[in-house]
């Protein structure tokens, strides 16, 4: 297995994540080219992955049937705003997130991370973790894991966990048990954030927004703002506020970006023998809700710096 993979296309990230059993769809939320790095290691009952990107990325579909996927970030610079959101939980330097993956069905989790940090996922076996937690009678940890979305860890445990992961990503995982011990320590000693009004509602709404935006069955005929409001049973002001706060853009713009990204994935995934330039681009554009090919190509070019036909040419090389 390669030590570190450098990519010029974020779609390659999802391909590598796929190998870890994470069927994730990744959307780049800002325009332009980027550089992406990923390193990962696997061993019995554990998988580690660290991702760095020069562009903010939205991950959807995270979560497997066997694991709890703990997440943390490593800042590259100082930032007042959160470095990302793990299922809506604001990720700061000392945050540990991703607890909800113990409750949700596989592929139901999401996260968004800025380009000012790297994000690391540590996937631990659910059953082993629960067994250890019970054995050492870590009631606080069990409570935190099942009820909180994340914790702030203001002691050495998270620091040690980060240090160990960095080392193991380079040399390979030597002792998986250490991860379980450190995560238990984090879960037991971490601090819950103060109660904020409306936060639980936001978590729910955010999850629904991400899910709806990625719903393939709805992509061919895009929803308007009032359709979305009606579907999610929410007012346009609160929907807009949440989207601006968490994704930095309006809901329809985000949904359009995700559709573009999915259209691009389709173009890049086509096999050589399925290609028929004029027809393929048109058909794919239409199936992702872009009726007018000229407009689709313009949008596509603004977002990715290449034309749909150029992506099609590249598809073999990926």
């Amino acid at each position: 297995m390669k030590l570190e993979l450098a990519y010029s296309d974020h779609i390659q990230l999802s391909e590598s994540l796929n190998e870890l059993g994470q069927t994730t769809r990744i959307t780049q939320l800002e325009k332009g080219e980027g550089k992406y790095m990923m390193s990962f290691k696997q061993s019995a009952g554990i998988a580690l992955a660290e991702i760095q990107s020069t562009q903010p990325l939205l991950y959807e579909g995270w979560g497997t049937s066997w694991s709890v996927d703990f997440n943390w970030i490593t800042p590259k610079c100082k930032l007042n705003d959160p470095f990302g959101y793990c299922e809506g939980y604001e990720m700061k330097e000392d945050s540990l997130g991703g607890f909800n993956t113990i409750n949700t069905s596989p592929g139901n989790s999401w996260g968004k991370y800025s380009n000012s940090c790297s994000s690391t996922a540590c996937m631990l076996d659910k059953r082993i973790l629960m067994k250890i937690l019970k054995e050492c009678n870590a009631t606080q940890a069990i409570d935190n894991l099942s009820k909180a979305r994340g914790l702030d860890i203001n002691n050495e445990s998270l620091h040690q966990l980060k240090k160990l992961t960095r080392k193991d990503l380079a040399r390979g995982i030597i002792n998986p048990t250490k991860y379980y011990d450190l995560i238990v320590a984090c879960l037991e000693s971490g601090e819950k954030r103060d109660y904020k009004k409306g936060l639980t509602k936001n978590y729910r709404l955010l999850g629904e927004i991400v899910q709806l935006s990625h719903d393939s069955s709805r992509m061919s005929s895009p929803m308007t703002l009032s359709d979305v409001c009606q579907y999610l049973d929410t007012g346009q002001a609160s929907l807009y506020r949440v989207c601006q706060d968490y994704f930095g853009m309006g809901i329809i713009e985000m949904m359009t970006q995700i559709r573009l990204e999915e259209a691009r994935r389709s173009l890049l995934m086509l096999k050589q023998n399925e290609k028929n330039h004029a027809l393929t681009v048109r058909d794919i554009a239409i199936s992702y809700g872009f009726k007018h090919q000229g407009r689709f190509s313009r949008r596509y070019f603004t977002s990715f710096g290449e034309l749909p036909s150029q992506s099609l040419d590249k598809s073999k090389g990926l």
């Binding site: 308007t224 703002l225 346009q236 002001a237 609160s238 807009y240 506020r241 601006q244 309006g250 329809i252």
Partner: peptide
């Protein structure tokens, strides 16, 4: 002003 209704209308209407 926290005027997200206005924001939504400008972007979607």
């Amino acid at each position: 002003m926290n005027a997200y209704n206005a924001f939504a209308k400008l972007e979607e209407c």
